[in-house]
Design a protein around this nucleic acid. Structure first.
Length: 201
DNA sequence: GCGGCGATCCACT
DNA sequence: GTGGATCGCCGCC
């Protein structure tokens, strides 16, 4: 199949909120430990570092962990949450503008057997890949995959021509960011309205 | 050096 | 609906 990976220019757009919506319907792929797995992105959240109390890079806060977010867009940002879950983000915008999109849910497309094994599951149901910790586990993504180029051959995103119009996408406040005060209510979580493959129905 | 706390998930009541 | 798992990050002052 011809490569239809999203180009670097896609990730370097400056409006991370718009970009979060555009990532809905794209296909996230990994080739890890020799296994190809992929899924249609059904849910995303935008984190805008310089002006977002919910972001790790809030106010442009630069630390060892957030350094990845300050790099040029088009790479991964993977970090460990609650000591257990590896959460996968797409770094966007250009260098020194710490924006990222958290991928919160996918619908499995390729490598379902591999995903079932990695998740220790027996049925292809939304609990397999709906939720940021779940999809990372299903795709084999860990913090070892942090700061990898999304134009490479380990971790990438394709456009396979599936488009979703604005009225098929719902915008709601983000999940698990109550600590962010007034910014917690920003409608920066996007998901396919009628899809079963989303977290927090 | 150390303590509190997560962009979560699962099992149990 | 509630709580435990589990560990790296960050700020302490």
């Amino acid at each position: 199949m011809a490569s239809n990976k999203l180009p670097l220019s896609f990730y370097q757009q400056s409006n991370v909120v718009q970009l979060s919506k555009k990532l809905i319907g794209k296909v996230l792929c990994t080739q890890i430990n020799g296994k190809l797995t992929s899924g249609l992105i059904t849910e995303t959240e935008a984190y805008r570092g310089y002006d977002d109390k919910a972001s790790h890079a809030s106010g442009g806060k630069r630390t060892q962990r957030t350094e990845t977010m300050f790099k040029n867009g088009g790479i991964s940002y993977v970090y460990l949450c609650y000591g257990i879950h590896h959460l996968f983000n797409v770094v966007t915008n250009t260098a020194n503008k710490p924006d990222a999109v958290l991928i919160r849910a996918i619908k499995p497309l390729q490598g379902k057997e591999t995903m079932l094994q990695r998740r220790n599951a027996s049925a292809n149901s939304p609990s397999l890949t709906a939720g940021p910790g779940r999809l990372s586990q299903a795709l084999g993504i860990t913090t070892a995959n942090d700061a990898l180029p999304l134009t490479g051959s380990t971790l990438w995103i394709e456009d396979r021509g599936d488009t979703f119009s604005d009225d098929m996408i719902t915008a709601k406040p983000r999940i698990g960011v109550d600590y962010a005060g007034d910014h917690a209510s920003r409608p920066w979580r996007f998901f396919i309205h009628d899809s079963a493959w989303v977290s927090h129905k």
